[in-house]
C-alpha cells in the first residue's frame, strides 16, 4: 500500500468516525432519555419531559431559521394555541381521542401560521418579521388574559392525562411514567419528520433560497411558496408540541404566548449550534442543566445564566454542537496524525 493511499484511507476513516461517534452519542442520549424514569426523581423527570417538548418545538423553529433563513419571534403564540386547543379538547371530554386532538392542534398551529405567512412573508423579512410576529404573539396573550371562558390570566388548570382508546384496547397515559414514554415516542416521530424535511429535497430547496434568492428563483424554485411552506411546517410543529405539553404540565396559561416562550427556541438554537439539526436539542438540554444545577442559588440565578450564555457565545462561536465537532475533529486529526507518524516510523 502506498503512503498516499494509506493517508487517504485514514482520512476517510476520520470523516466516518466523527459521524459515527456523534451517532453513537445520539443513540446513547436517546437511551438515557428513555430510561430516565428509572434513573431520576420525578422533579427532574418532569423537567426532562418539558425539555423534550421544547427541544422538538425548537427544532421546528430552527428548520424555519437555519434552513429558510426566517426568524420568527412569535412561535410561542403558536405553541400556546396548540396547548389551549389540547386543553380545551380534554376539558370537553375528548381525551380518549387524544391522537386526533393532537392532529387538530397541529392543524390549528399550521392554519394560523398560514394566515400570518400569507400576509407577512411576501412583504417583510428579517427584523421586521421578527417584531411583527413578536407583537402578534403578545396580542394573543392579551386576548387570552381577558377571556374568562379560557380561565383569564390563570389559564386552564387540572388537565387530566388522557387514556388513548383504540376500540379493542386502551393505553392509559395517566398512570406513572406512561405519558413520559408517550412524549418520547412522539418526539422521536416529530424529530424524524423534521430530519426528513430538512435533509430531503424540500430542505435543499430552502437552503438554496437562503443562500441566494435570485439564483434559486432562476432555477425554478418558487421562493415565496417554499418560505410559506417552511413557515407553516414550523407552525404545525409548534402547535403539535403545545398539544403534547398541555397534559404533561396539566396546566396552560396565557404566558405560554409570552416573550419567554418565543425566545426559548432562539436561545436553544444559538447555544446549541446554528445551522445544525441537533443544535436546538443540545441547547435545550444544556439550558435545562444550567437551570437545574443553579436552582438553589436564589437571587443570583439571572447573573449566572447570563454569564454562562456570554461565555458560551464568546468561547464557542458555533454553539455547543459546533464546538464539540471542532473538538472532535481536532482530537481525531491528532490521532490520525499520530497513527500515520507511527506507521511511518514502523516502516
Amino acid at each position: 500500500m502506498s503512503t498516499a493511499l494509506a493517508e487517504r484511507h485514514t482520512g476517510r476513516e476520520q470523516a466516518l468516525s466523527r459521524v459515527q461517534i456523534n451517532r453513537a452519542l445520539i443513540a446513547l442520549a436517546a437511551l438515557i432519555v428513555l430510561l430516565m424514569p428509572f434513573l431520576v426523581n420525578s422533579g427532574l423527570l418532569y423537567l426532562v419531559g418539558v425539555t423534550l417538548v421544547l427541544a422538538v418545538y425548537s427544532v421546528g423553529w430552527n428548520v424555519l431559521f437555519s434552513w429558510a433563513g426566517l426568524a420568527s419571534f412569535g412561535s410561542g403564540g403558536l405553541f400556546c394555541i396548540g396547548a389551549y386547543v389540547a386543553a380545551l379538547a380534554i376539558r370537553a371530554g375528548w381525551g380518549e381521542h387524544f391522537l386526533p386532538v393532537i392532529a387538530l392542534a397541529t392543524l390549528a398551529g399550521a392554519l394560523v401560521a398560514l394566515l400570518v405567512g400569507l400576509v407577512a412573508l411576501r412583504r417583510m423579512s428579517g427584523i421586521f418579521l421578527a417584531i411583527l410576529t413578536l407583537s402578534l404573539a403578545e396580542l394573543l396573550r392579551h386576548v387570552l388574559m381577558r377571556v374568562r371562558w379560557l380561565g383569564s390570566e390563570d389559564g386552564i388548570p387540572n388537565i387530566t392525562r388522557p387514556v388513548l382508546s383504540f376500540g379493542f384496547f386502551d393505553i392509559d397515559l395517566s398512570s406513572g411514567s406512561a405519558y413520559y414514554w408517550f412524549l418520547c415516542v412522539a418526539s422521536a416521530i416529530l424529530l424524524g419528520i423534521c430530519w426528513w424535511l430538512a435533509h430531503g429535497p424540500f430542505g435543499r430547496r430552502l437552503l438554496a433560497v437562503r443562500h441566494d434568492i435570485e439564483r434559486a428563483s432562476f432555477i425554478g424554485i418558487d421562493v415565496h411558496r417554499s418560505r410559506l411552506v417552511a413557515f407553516v411546517v414550523s407552525g404545525a410543529i409548534a402547535g403539535c408540541a403545545g398539544a403534547l405539553y398541555a397534559p404533561w404540565a396539566q396546566i396552560v396559561t396565557p404566558d405560554l404566548a409570552g416573550m419567554v416562550k418565543s425566545t426559548q427556541p432562539i436561545l436553544f438554537t444559538l447555544l446549541g449550534g446554528l445551522h445544525s439539526f441537533w443544535g436546538p436539542v443540545v441547547g435545550a438540554f444544556a439550558f435545562m442543566a444550567i437551570d437545574y444545577f443553579t436552582r438553589t442559588l436564589i437571587g443570583i440565578q439571572e447573573v449566572i445564566t447570563g454569564g454562562i450564555l456570554l461565555v458560551v457565545i464568546l468561547v464557542f462561536r458555533s454553539g455547543i454542537a459546533g464546538g464539540w465537532n471542532a473538538l472532535l475533529d481536532g482530537a481525531l486529526a491528532r490521532r490520525g496524525l499520530d497513527r500515520a507518524l507511527a506507521r511511518q516510523e514502523a516502516r
Binding site: 422533579g43 418532569y46 404540565a249 396539566q250
Partner: peptide, 28 residues
Amino acid sequence: LAAFRELTGDGVKLFAQGTFTANILATL
C-alpha cells in the same frame, strides 16, 4: 411543578407555596 415534583420525589410531605395563583393551581 418541577420544584414540587423534585421535593416530593425526595420525600417532602409538607409544603408552603405562595404568590401567583396560576403557579398554585399547577400543583394543587
